[in-house]
Amino acid sequence: MKSLAELAAIREKALKEISLRQSNDGYKIIVGMATCGIAAGARPVMNSFVEELKKRNLTNATVSMTGCVGVCRLEPMVEVIAPDGEKTTYVKMSPEMVEKIVVEHIVNGKPVKEYTIGNADN
């Protein structure tokens, strides 16, 4: 069984890593998590983002949720806001699409055009 002692160990380790996660100077990944988004599969998508960021040890992005973005038929939707304020909206997301977005957008700064709302075939 997991114990609080493990948590203390995670704390020690995190404190040794010099850069504790900065929340305001990186990419913001915002997943639409209203009834429509959840029903369409938003939760596994958000989970994939957290897992990908952890796997790659990325500290320049935070993951959060918002309510209904307003285009329920295109859910699950994810907005990525770059440090310069540029917003990209990804639609009809699945967990499989997450890795590409993390690698190309969060790491290399190039939005994945084929997944964006502008490319949605309605």
Partner: peptide
């Protein structure tokens, strides 16, 4: 959990994974 973590944020990926497990 946050009390145990002290200044380490609860949103630290390893902490989130621990909570999940």
């Amino acid at each position: 959990i946050q009390d145990t973590l002290g200044e380490v944020p609860i949103t630290n990926f390893e902490v989130i994974e621990w909570i999940n497990n």
